[in-house]
Design a protein around this nucleic acid. Structure first.
Length: 892
RNA sequence: GGUGCCAUGGCUCAGUCGGUAGAGCACAUCGUUCACAUCGAUGGGGUCGUAGGUUCGAGUCCUACUGGCACCACCA
C-alpha cells in the first residue's frame, strides 16, 4: 500500500474507528475459566462537553484496556453517562429562561420531557467526542444513570437501606443553595475565602440594663436569634446566668444560656445563637431546647407574613416586618444601618474568612433547617474503611488512601434528597388520609394501610451521587444476578481524578461492600491529577483558559493528543497542557509513520526472521526491543503510563530509527540477497512489535500502519501483546554493538570538533582491544555509512605509521584518523588534555570508592566488580591517551 | 488547626531496589539525491529549595526550616 510522506490522521481516524466498531472489536466476551479485566468508566455528566480532564482520564483507561485486551484477558470497558441532577437541571432551567419559560410553567412532566431531550442531545455529543478520542469501550453495554436498570438498582438500594434503618427522614440543618433551590450534601460545599466584617453588636440585658457585646459575621441572621450564649466558666458574665437579653429591632426577649460552645478566648466570649441558620448554633439550640426561628426564604430573601410555615416541630417562620422580601444582602445593610442608628453597633472590624459555597454554582450556602432524607453513614463506613485497610481495594499512589480514610473516619450523615425534578424520584409515598408513609420497590395504586387512593409520592429526587455510588454493579445488571455481574464484578481498576475521591470513590466502596456481600467494587483505584493550563492554573470556564480536545484532535490528531497527555504524567500528579507537547507527540507519530514507510518500501512481502542469519546489529535491536517490552509491560501493570510512554518513545526514535534503521541500510542496499532477506525479517518483526507496544497510546496510527504490513491480518488491536522470548536476548552481542555505536559517536564528535566537512570521507584505523577485532571488521559498512569512513582497517598498534592522526580511545578500540592538513594540532592537543583531565577525575573517583573499606565490604559484589572493571578500563584509556599526547607533541 | 503533596538545566517534567543526574522543548554550530526538515549530526547548560542526620554511599530514607499547592476541620 502506498503511504503518504506525512501521517495525516484526520482522514484516517474516523474510518478506522468505524471499522473497529462495526467489527465488534470493542465488545467484551465472557470466557469461562479466564480471568477478566474490567473497568467501568467514570460516567461524564451530560451537562456539556468533553474537557481535557476527560481526555486524560479516558486516554489512561484506554491504554490499560488495550494493553489487557492484547494480553488476551477477556476485557470489558463499560461506558456510560451521568444524569448529573443539579448540574443538568441548572443548565436546562437557564436554557428555558431564554425562551421565557420556567419550571413551573412547564410542570413536572413537561420539564422532564425537555430534560430527556437534553439528555439525548448532550449525552450523544459526549459519546461522539469520546469516539473521536479513539477509546475502545464496549458501546453495546453503554449505560446511563437514569436508564431502567440503573433506576431499578437505585430503588432497590434505597428500599434495602431504609428497611435496615440506614435511611431516614428528618428535619435537620442542611446546606441550602438558594440558587439551585435545593439542599446539598456536605461534600458539595466548597469553602472560599471572602472579604467580610466582624460586626460588634450590643444587646441590652433585660435584668441589668447593661449592653452585652457580641460579634457576628452575619448580622442579617439576628432576627432569628433565640438565645445568647456565654461559657459557664466565664467569670466576666457569671452575674448574667439566668438573665435575658432584649433582641433589638424586634424587641424580643431571649435567654442567656450557658454553653461550652461560647469560647472565652474569642472576641468578647459572647455569642448569639441562631439555631435555624447555623450548624453550631443548631447544636446549642438542641442542647438547650431552644426554638428555631427561620428568617430566610428558600430563595434567599427575608421571610414575611405570607411565607408559609414548614411542617417542622418547634420551628417558627418569622415575619421580618420591614425587612421582609429583602435579599439577605439588602437585609444585612438595612439591619446594620438600623442598629447603628440605635447606637448598638460598637465597631466594625474587617475580616477575611472562609465561606461555604455551592460547588456547582458558587452561590453562598445558606444553612437551613428543612426536612430531608439522609443515609446514616457511620455503620456503612465501617466495612468500607475495612476494605481499604485490608488492602482489598488499593489506592495508587497509596497516599490517597489517607484522604479517603480522613473522610470516611469523620463521616457525617449524607443528605440525599434534592429539591429538584431531574433525577431518581424518592420511592416514598404518603397517604393523605391516614398519614401512612410507604417505601416501595413498585409504584403503589393506593395506600397499603387504609386503601385510600389519595396518595402522593415524595416530591424530591436523589442526589446524583447516589446512583453514581452504585455504578460498578448497577451497570452490570444488579439487582439481577446477570452473567455479566457474576463474571465481571468486582472490577479491576478505577481510573479517576483525586478531586472526586470523597464524592464518588468513597461512596462506591461504601455501597459496593454493602450491596455486594462485602466485595469491594474495584481492586485498584488509580488516581490521576488535573490537567492544568500552561501557567499551571486550573482550566475553567470563568478563566476562559480551557482547551477543547476536539479542536486539538482536528489539528494534530487523536493519537498526538493522547500521547501528549500521557508523556511524563505520573500517578496522582497534576499535568500541564501545552500545545508544544502535542506538537512534539505529533512529530513522534510522524516519525513512526516514516520509519514504517521505510520498512514497507524495503520489505514488500512477509519475511520470517532467520535466527542463523542474525548479525550483531540485529541481535542488538532484538535485545533492546525485549528490554523495552519488558519494561513497558511492567509499567502498564503498575499504572505507570508516563514511564511506558517515555520508553516506547525512546525505543522507537532513538533505538529503532536512529540506529537500527541506519544500520540496516547497508544490507538492504547491498548485493547479498540472503543478508537482505535476513534484515528484512528483523525489520518486520521489530516494527510489528513496536506497533504493538505503541498501540495502547497511539491506536489509530499503529492500526493504520499494521494494515499495510505484509502478512498482516485482522486488527492490530486484537493481536497479542509482544511476548518475551529468552532466545531473543543477546546480551553479549548487544554489548559489542554498543561498542560500535560508541565508536561511531566518538568519530562523529571528532569530526565535528575538527571541523571536518560532512562530505569529506577519510580512512580510519582501529587498534582493537581484546575481543573486539571481529566485530570491528564486520562493522566496516557501518563506519562507512554512519561515520564518514572511506575505509576502515583493524591493525596492531605496531602497524601504525608516522602519519599524523587524531585519535580517540573507546571501550572497543583506539581510533586513529589521518586527517592530513585538516588537523589543527593545537586543537587536538587541547582536546586530548581535556580527555586526560576527565579520565583522571573519573579514576580518582573510582579509586576513592574502591579504597573505601566500607564500600568494598558492604556494597553488593556485582557493584564492586563493576567499579573495578570501570577503573581498569579508564586506566587503560588514560594510558593510551597520555601516550598519544606525548607522541603528538613529539611529532611537532 | 490537622493531614498530605511538590521544589531537579532557561521552560515543562521523568528519575522504579539508595550505587558517578535523564528526556522533550528552547539555545548554538553544521547538514537536504537515496523513510522523515513534523528531519539528521554535534555541542553548551544542573552545588537536585535550605540546614542537619542515617549510610561505605542520598536527588532518592529521616528531622527541622523556607516557598508553592491540595484535602479535611474550624471560622460568634
Amino acid at each position: 500500500m502506498e503511504m503518504e510522506k506525512n501521517f495525516n490522521p484526520q482522514a484516517l481516524e474516523s474510518e478506522l474507528y468505524k471499522a473497529w466498531e462495526e467489527a465488534g472489536a470493542f465488545t467484551a466476551h465472557r470466557v469461562e475459566g479466564k480471568k477478566p479485566f474490567t473497568i467501568v468508566m467514570p460516567p461524564p455528566n451530560i451537562t456539556g462537553q468533553l474537557h481535557m480532564g476527560h481526555a486524560l482520564d479516558c486516554t489512561l483507561q484506554d491504554a490499560a484496556i488495550r494493553y489487557h485486551r492484547m494480553k488476551g484477558d477477556p476485557t470489558l470497558w463499560l461506558p456510560g453517562t451521568d444524569h448529573a441532577a443539579i448540574a443538568t437541571e441548572v443548565k436546562i432551567v437557564a436554557a428555558m429562561e431564554k425562551e421565557g419559560l420556567t419550571k413551573e410553567s412547564l410542570g413536572r412532566e413537561g420539564f422532564l420531557e425537555r430534560a430527556w431531550k437534553w439528555k439525548e442531545e448532550y449525552g450523544g455529543r459526549i459519546v461522539h467526542q469520546q469516539r473521536r478520542m479513539g477509546i475502545s469501550c464496549d458501546w453495546s453495554r453503554e449505560r446511563f444513570t437514569m436508564d431502567e436498570g440503573c433506576s431499578k438498582a437505585v430503588r432497590e438500594t434505597f428500599c434495602r437501606l431504609y428497611e435496615k434503618g440506614l435511611i431516614y427522614r428528618g428535619a435537620r440543618l442542611v446546606n441550602w443553595c438558594p440558587c439551585c433551590m435545593s439542599a446539598i450534601s456536605d461534600a458539595e460545599v466548597t469553602y472560599e475565602e471572602k472579604q467580610g466584617n466582624f460586626w460588634h453588636l450590643l444587646y441590652p440585658v433585660k435584668e441589668t440594663g447593661e449592653l452585652l457585646e457580641l460579634a457576628t459575621t452575619r448580622p442579617e441572621t439576628m432576627l432569628g436569634d433565640t438565645a445568647v450564649a456565654i461559657n459557664p466558666e466565664d467569670e466576666r458574665y457569671a452575674h448574667l446566668h439566668g438573665c435575658h437579653v432584649i433582641l433589638p429591632l424586634i424587641n424580643k426577649e431571649i435567654p442567656i444560656v450557658c454553653d461550652e460552645h461560647a469560647d472565652m478566648t474569642k472576641g468578647t466570649g459572647v455569642v448569639k445563637i441562631t439555631p435555624a441558620h447555623d450548624p453550631n448554633d443548631n447544636e446549642v439550640g438542641a442542647r438547650h431546647n431552644l426554638p428555631l426561628v427561620r428568617v430566610f426564604t428558600y430563595d434567599g430573601h427575608m421571610t414575611g407574613a405570607q411565607d408559609a410555615s414548614d411542617d417542622i416541630e418547634n420551628l417558627e417562620v418569622l415575619d421580618c416586618g420591614k425587612y421582609a422580601g429583602m435579599t439577605t444582602d439588602e437585609a444585612r445593610k438595612a439591619i446594620v444601618a438600623d442598629m447603628t442608628a440605635l447606637g448598638l453597633v460598637k465597631s466594625i472590624e474587617p475580616l477575611t474568612h472562609e465561606v461555604g459555597t455551592c460547588y456547582r454554582c458558587n452561590t453562598v450556602i445558606e444553612p437551613m433547617v428543612s426536612k430531608q432524607w439522609f443515609v446514616s453513614m457511620k455503620p456503612l463506613a465501617k466495612p468500607a474503611i475495612e476494605a481499604v485497610t485490608s488492602g482489598a481495594t488499593q489506592f495508587l499512589p497509596e497516599r490517597f488512601s489517607k484522604q479517603y480514610m480522613n473522610w470516611m473516619t469523620n463521616i457525617r450523615d449524607w443528605c440525599i434528597s434534592r429539591q429538584l425534578w431531574w433525577g431518581h424520584r424518592i420511592p416514598v409515598w404518603y397517604c393523605d388520609d391516614c398519614g401512612e408513609m410507604m417505601v416501595l420497590r413498585e409504584d403503589p395504586c393506593c395506600c397499603q394501610k387504609c386503601g385510600s387512593k389519595h396518595i402522593n409520592q415524595d416530591e424530591d429526587v436523589l442526589d446524583t451521587w447516589f446512583s453514581s455510588a452504585l455504578w460498578p454493579f448497577s451497570t452490570l445488571g444488579w439487582p439481577e444476578q446477570t452473567e455479566d455481574l457474576k463474571y465481571f464484578y468486582p472490577t479491576d481498576v478505577l481510573v479517576t481524578g483525586y478531586d472526586i475521591i470523597t464524592f464518588w470513590v468513597s461512596r462506591m466502596i461504601t455501597m459496593g461492600v454493602e450491596e455486594m456481600a462485602g466485595v469491594t467494587p474495584f481492586k485498584t483505584v488509580l488516581i490521576h491529577g488535573l490537567v492544568r493550563d500552561e501557567l499551571g492554573r486550573k482550566m475553567s470556564k470563568s478563566l476562559g483558559n480551557g482547551v477543547d480536545p476536539l479542536e486539538v484532535i482536528e489539528k494534530y490528531g487523536a493519537d498526538a493528543l493522547r500521547f501528549s497527555l500521557v508523556m511524563g504524567v505520573s500517578p496522582g500528579n497534576d499535568t500541564r497542557y501545552a500545545e508544544a507537547k502535542v506538537e512534539s507527540a505529533r512529530n513522534f507519530a510522524n516519525k513512526v509513520w516514516n520509519a514504517s514507510r521505510f520498512v514497507l518500501m524495503n520489505v514488500t512481502e512477509k519475511v520470517e526472521m532467520q535466527p542463523e542469519m542474525l548479525t550483531a546489529a540485529d541481535k542488538w535491536i532484538l535485545t533492546r526491543f525485549q528490554d523495552a517490552a519488558r519494561q513497558i509491560s511492567g509499567n502498564m501493570e503498575e499504572g505507570e503510563f508516563g514511564l511506558a510512554a517515555n520508553r516506547i518513545y525512546d525505543f522507537a526514535w532513538s533505538e529503532f530509527c536512529d540506529w537500527y534503521i541506519e544500520l540496516a541500510k547497508s544490507r538492504l542496499n547491498g548485493e547479498d540477497e540472503a543478508a537482505k532477506k535476513a534484515v528484512q525479517g528483523v525489520l518486520l518483526y521489530v516494527l510489528e512489535g513496536l506497533l504493538k507496544l505503541l498501540h495502547p497510546f497511539m491506536p489509530f496510527l499503529t492500526e493504520q500502519v499494521y494494515k499495510s504490513l505484509p502478512g498482516s491480518e485482522g486488527f492490530l488491536m486484537l493481536k497479542s501483546w509482544p511476548e518475551i522470548k529468552p532466545e531473543l536476548d543477546f546480551p553479549a552481542d548487544e554489548k559489542q554493538m554498543d561498542g560500535v555505536i560508541e565508536m561511531i559517536r566518538v568519530i562523529r564528535n571528532l569530526r565535528t570538533e575538527m571541523n571536518v566537512a560532512p562530505s569529506k570521507r577519510t580512512r580510519m584505523m582501529f587498534v582493537a582491544n581484546e575481543g573486539w577485532a571481529d566485530t570491528l571488521t564486520a562493522s566496516d559498512m557501518y563506519f562507512r555509512r554512519l561515520a564518514g569512513a572511506s575505509e576502515t582497517v583493524v591493525i596492531a598498534e605496531s602497524e601504525l605509521g608516522t602519519e599524523k592522526t587524531v585519535s580517540a580511545v573507546t571501550e572497543a578500540a583506539t581510533i586513529y584518523i589521518p586527517l592530513g592538513d585538516l588537523v589543527d594540532f593545537d586543537k587536538e592537543i587541547a582536546r586530548l588534555q581535556k580527555e586526560i583531565d576527565n579520565l583522571t577525575k573519573e579514576i580518582a573517583r573510582a579509586e576513592g570508592k574502591l579504597n573505601n573499606q566500607g564500600f568494598v565490604a558492604k556494597a553488593p559484589a556485582a557493584l564492586v566488580e563493576q567499579e573495578k572493571a570501570k577503573l581498569a578500563l579508564n586506566q587503560q584509556k588514560l594510558e593510551q591517551v597520555e601516550k598519544r599526547l606525548a607522541e603528538l607533541k613529539e611529532s611537532l
